[in-house]
Design a binder for these strands. Structure first.
Lengths: 126, 126
DNA sequence: ATTATTGCAAAGATTTTGCATCACC
DNA sequence: GGTGATGCAAAATCTTTGCAATAAT
């Protein structure tokens, strides 16, 4: 039986109120401003818990630590290969799973796709 | 100017001769059978080097350590969500990048896609 | 001879975990 | 009161790095 805690509420609210796909450490420092005694271990434990419950999504990108997204509706991510920014791409689910299943002996349940390139700040002006 | 070494040759050959998408540690143990003095640091350094040269691909999956693929032609990967096996999916490049670019302010250069589901060994029989 | 590469071991970076305490039900 | 969650710190895991020695050009 799961019990409420201030910490878990703050972590969940922090995630859903931001769009920068923070790392555990970024969430930790953000929440410490309101709750100075919270520990990094608690942040990690709750982020895992939220992912497990389907209330957050974990993003493992090319390098650097794991990032988290509190917006769990289906959408894609764009990673700037220069500055590392992570932006959302709101786009309908593509039908690539059914295509992939033709080339594969297993049962496909979903896919993880990251687009990468230069974000508008890093793209050369002309 | 880059110099040859037995170690680098063995690492590259090891990668291209297997299809299980090994971790650095798996490559290390495999090569130690032929070259018992090779060090894990050397394996990591050379795997990074090969990825940098375009002779290998790095796969960061949901959990567990980084994996490497010595087959660098464009193809996709299927990860069994139960046993963690990584298989190749040989499939033509999909046109999802051009679709994504319509929903995004940046310049898309490519994408990383992992399909996941149950492999044929883990899929319930009926 | 020069310098890229190695082996080793120590350090870094990130994440998990054991345990006593605290707080929710 | 029972037990799930916390804070803390230590441990675990994975990867990188400094440095003296080695080996390729």
């Amino acid at each position: 039986m799961t019990k409420r805690s201030i910490q878990r509420d703050l972590i969940k609210n922090n995630l859903t109120s931001r769009y920068d796909h923070p790392t555990a450490d970024m969430v930790y420092h953000s929440i410490r401003q309101k709750l100075p005694n919270i520990s990094l271990g608690t942040v990690y434990r709750n982020l895992r818990f939220l992912v497990e419950q389907g209330d957050a999504v974990s993003l493992k990108l090319g390098d650097g630590p794991e990032r988290f997204d509190g917006h769990v509706h289906p959408h894609y991510h764009f990673i700037c290969s220069q500055c590392g920014a992570v932006e959302d791409i709101e786009m309908d689910e593509l039908s690539i799973c059914s295509q992939a299943s033709k080339h594969c002996s297993g049962e496909i349940q979903g896919h993880i796709t990251y687009f990468y390139g230069l974000c508008k700040d890093c793209k050369p002006k002309h």
